[in-house]
Simulated assay, not measured.
Amino acid sequence: MVSITIKVQELLDERGMSQKSLAEKTGIRKAAISEICNNMRTSINREHLEKIVLALGLTSIEQLMHLDVEND
């Protein structure tokens, strides 16, 4: 089984930022930011990921996502 976790909320917490602040910085709807932060999305727009990476000053994809692979 493979599980991908988006770590946006964790990153916001580390930076003392709100979802609203990220929405304002990126131009992404607050509802979409909330869904991303709560890992409720089954797909995420690549443009949204790029905007989030820029807004948070990330330098690697590992900062944004966690991949968990369970071998049966």
Rank of each mutant, 00 (worst) to 15 (best):
M1L: 12
M1E: 14
V2Y: 09
S3Q: 12
I4H: 06
T5Y: 10
I6P: 12
I6F: 13
I6G: 06
V8A: 06
V8F: 09
Q9D: 12
Q9Y: 15
E10Q: 13
E10L: 11
E10D: 04
L11I: 10
D13R: 12
D13A: 00
D13T: 01
E14M: 07
E14C: 03
E14H: 00
R15T: 01
R15C: 05
G16V: 09
G16L: 05
G16M: 01
G16Q: 05
M17F: 11
M17T: 04
S18M: 07
S18V: 07
S18Q: 07
Q19F: 01
Q19E: 05
Q19P: 01
K20L: 13
K20S: 10
S21V: 11
L22M: 06
L22S: 13
E24V: 12
K25V: 02
K25C: 08
I28Y: 01
I28L: 04
R29S: 12
R29A: 14
A32N: 14
A32T: 14
I33M: 11
I33W: 10
S34D: 03
S34P: 05
I36L: 08
I36P: 02
I36C: 08
C37T: 13
N38T: 02
N39W: 05
M40E: 15
R41H: 03
R41L: 10
R41D: 00
R41K: 14
T42Y: 02
S43Q: 13
I44N: 00
I44S: 09
I44Y: 02
I44P: 03
N45H: 07
N45F: 00
R46V: 13
R46S: 10
H48R: 05
H48L: 03
H48D: 15
K51A: 09
I52D: 04
I52A: 04
I52H: 08
L54H: 11
A55N: 11
A55T: 12
A55C: 12
L56T: 12
L56R: 08
L58W: 05
L58S: 08
L58T: 10
I61P: 04
I61W: 08
E62H: 09
Q63W: 01
Q63E: 12
Q63L: 03
L64K: 04
L64Q: 02
L64T: 02
M65E: 03
M65W: 04
H66V: 06
H66E: 02
L67A: 09
D68I: 07
D68E: 13
V69N: 06
V69R: 08
E70S: 14
E70K: 15
D72A: 15
D72M: 15
D72Q: 14
D72P: 15
